[in-house]
Design a binder for these strands. Structure first.
Lengths: 216, 216
DNA sequence: AAATATTTTTAGATTTGTCTAAATTTTTTA
DNA sequence: TAAAAAATTTAGACAAATCTAAAAATATTT
């Protein structure tokens, strides 16, 4: 089908296109830990295969065919992450690297059966939505904690930063997916935020609040 | 660690060394679907890494380091096959290709947890022994059906041919792992063999009998 | 809007794993 | 045991994916 490198480029373009509209060569180079010149070469190849729309100097977007492949890889990644956490008892900060390898196992029959085996989960361990076998999915309506008013209640439902360091910090504070919180105060000096979590009061930096997502 | 190609060479050398003593360039080329000249190139590389003992024109053997890697790959392959059959309900003739990809997932922690999740199985769906995390395993004491006398009882415990065609044939005849059989007769004309399987009488060719393995 | 800075592409080289064709070594056969 | 056959290695080439350095295009600044 497609090579491992091609799959990783498509996936990266998909992720970057969620923020921006069109994706630049340098953005891809940064995310893929490679050089801009290498990216240009690969973009030509993917354009040749009609998986991306590429005009030199103008950035890229995915074609429908390219997006379909990207979403399928993300489906595999998130289902394997769910498997690793729910069945093999890994923690949410331990599974990303493994899933990066597992997402390239080619069989769709395998991934569909894995999906069924786990009861068709809708969200992965980080709260990200898992596309179904047709590529359809619905994200939670998420807001960063930093974006809500005092006295707002919410349920922790996702993270913006997926780094192990951030996830471990959240774990230590008890700020895990599904927990109910209330924003009780904002410190004027540095805009850090005070949360009520059950009977515990927790103070988090603005930086953390920006990266912690809740549903209302 | 090692590349995918390197891992496949080590695994192939291990499998071929079970029959012969030392493994030839052409044997490897045939098993790996490549050319003898490509094999020579790779053997130089593996010898450089001290994973094989290689003397030009004299064939190869694995060093202890190379054997350790080979057995670990086989452990992964067989555990994933077990998972696919026991948890995802694939049939024993459907899992080989998928496991060929999955055996290269690098994390040993993952495979150890998978092993535990499944209750530390000792044999894969084809009856082949699964090495433990130290690389230790014990094969069944297997005999081909063609190698036993009339009126011998045995339990089907393995296959020599792992092809989908052969496994599907066995399935259709009800000749699956764990079934008890008795050899009741040998046809003089073509040395095909007559088996009793529960209340069914089955006749199998000498070829099939050579590839069907039982414990006594 | 000209000068400067940034981004992106091109040109040419490198590594990995493969190939074909030719040369060499080993094995078999007569 | 010399000739023929088979197996193996060497030499040189190629595709994929990457790199560095230089050139070209775009964006920013004054």
């Amino acid at each position: 089908m497609n090579t491992l490198a091609e799959e990783n480029y498509l996936k990266s373009i998909y992720h970057l296109a969620l923020n921006n509209e069109s994706v630049s060569t340098n953005q891809l180079a940064a995310l893929l830990n490679t050089k801009a010149s290498s990216v240009t070469d690969m973009l030509k190849k993917l354009a040749e295969k009609e998986l991306i729309n590429y005009t030199p100097y103008q950035g890229v977007t995915l074609t429908p065919a390219g997006e379909k492949i990207a979403i399928n890889i993300i489906r595999k990644h998130r289902l394997w992450e769910y498997f690793l956490v729910e069945k093999l008892n890994f923690k949410w900060d331990e599974v990303h690297e493994m899933a990066e390898e597992m997402e390239h196992i080619s069989s769709n029959e395998l991934i569909d059966r894995l999906d069924k085996f786990m009861g068709f989960p809708k969200y992965d361990p980080h709260g990200d939505p898992i596309p179904d076998s047709d590529g359809k999915f619905k994200a939670h309506d998420l807001k960063p904690v930093s974006g809500v008013d005092i006295n707002t209640n919410g349920v922790i439902s996702g993270v913006r930063d997926h780094s192990a360091a951030f996830l471990q910090y959240l774990d230590k504070q008890g700020l895990t997916i599904g927990k109910k919180i209330t924003v009780t105060d904002v410190v004027e000096f540095d805009r850090s935020m005070v949360l009520q979590l059950g009977d515990k009061t927790i103070q988090i930096s603005r930086e953390v609040a920006n990266n912690l997502l809740i549903t209302l």
